[in-house]
């Protein structure tokens, strides 16, 4: 018999009665005191989501956000004791939450905010030594087979909505009145030193970085990016990655013939 099981069930479900075997010194209804625990659990977890998804909260307003987050907390309480991990399922929940359906971009804004949390806490990794790429340039015929390992903090979001502009407008970077949420944008999230950056990137940049993440060679990744986006500029894209310390290792693909 496990009394904590009853306690937990009643904590998460306000329709249930307060668990048995509780009392107050003055004989008052223990349900009012049990409510403190109910409230702590729910409000602290809603607070945790509010800290992780501040732009989602600003977009819908605090009242809507807290009510929506409370539904998620009751459906999907944390399974990790580390609250930095809590919220991975929130964007998917928002996407399927009917009262938020009038804002189809909301889930992708949540995805972008989640990428920022992940980037912030991701493992540390030293950027590529400054001369490593220069050394590779000595043998241009091998460049096509280069493999890039990217920083663990790096994340990509290819959205049908203007996620980067929506996010930036809530950082004071541009006026929200000028943002059309229904323009597709790709976002790159990375940690440059101690700062998490959000960058709007071209579709070709996104394809290129995604291909590198999948372990494709520089040649293949460039090919895919150029095929998707005629304006893709490899030099500019790599320069951004290098400047942000987003490339951590170089290797050669030994399994494919060199071009």
């Amino acid at each position: 018999m496990n009394s904590q099981e009853d306690f937990v069930a009643a904590l998460l479900d306000p329709q249930r009665d307060c668990p048995p075997q509780l009392k107050a010194w003055n004989g008052s209804d223990p349900a009012a005191r049990f409510a403190v625990y109910r409230n702590n659990v729910l409000s602290s977890l809603v607070d945790a989501l509010a800290v992780s998804f501040p732009v989602v909260q600003q977009l819908v307003g605090e009242e809507f956000f807290r009510a929506m987050a409370a539904v998620h907390v009751r459906q999907s309480p944390p399974r990790s004791r580390i609250l930095a991990d809590y919220g991975a399922g929130f964007p998917g929940f928002v996407e399927g939450f009917p009262p938020a359906a009038s804002l189809p971009y909301l889930a992708d804004v949540a995805r972008l905010e989640w990428l920022r949390i992940r980037a912030y806490h991701a493992a540390d990794a030293a950027p590529l030594a400054s001369d490593a790429l220069a050394a590779a340039l000595v043998a241009p015929e091998t460049l096509g087979a280069l493999l890039f390992q990217l920083h663990p903090a790096l994340g990509l979001l290819d959205s049908a909505f203007a996620v980067v502009s929506l996010w930036a407008a809530h950082q004071g970077a541009l006026a929200i009145a000028g943002v059309d949420p229904y323009q597709a944008q790709c976002a790159l999230v990375l940690r440059n030193g101690l700062e998490v950056e959000v960058l709007g990137i071209r579709p070709g940049d996104a394809r290129f970085i995604q291909a590198l993440q999948q372990g494709l060679t520089l040649g293949r990744a460039t090919q895919q990016a150029s095929a998707l986006d005629a304006g893709f500029e490899l030099g500019a894209c790599l320069a951004h990655l290098l400047r942000a310390g987003a490339i951590t290792h170089l290797a050669y693909d030994s399994e494919r013939p060199l071009p």
Binding site: Q4, P78, R81
Partner: peptide, 16 residues
């Protein structure tokens, strides 16, 4: 206590 089964309740819950 603050965990039950797989769930983490994020509160310091009381004991008998």
């Amino acid at each position: 206590w603050s965990s039950h089964g797989e769930l983490f309740l994020n509160d310091l819950l009381p004991l008998a």
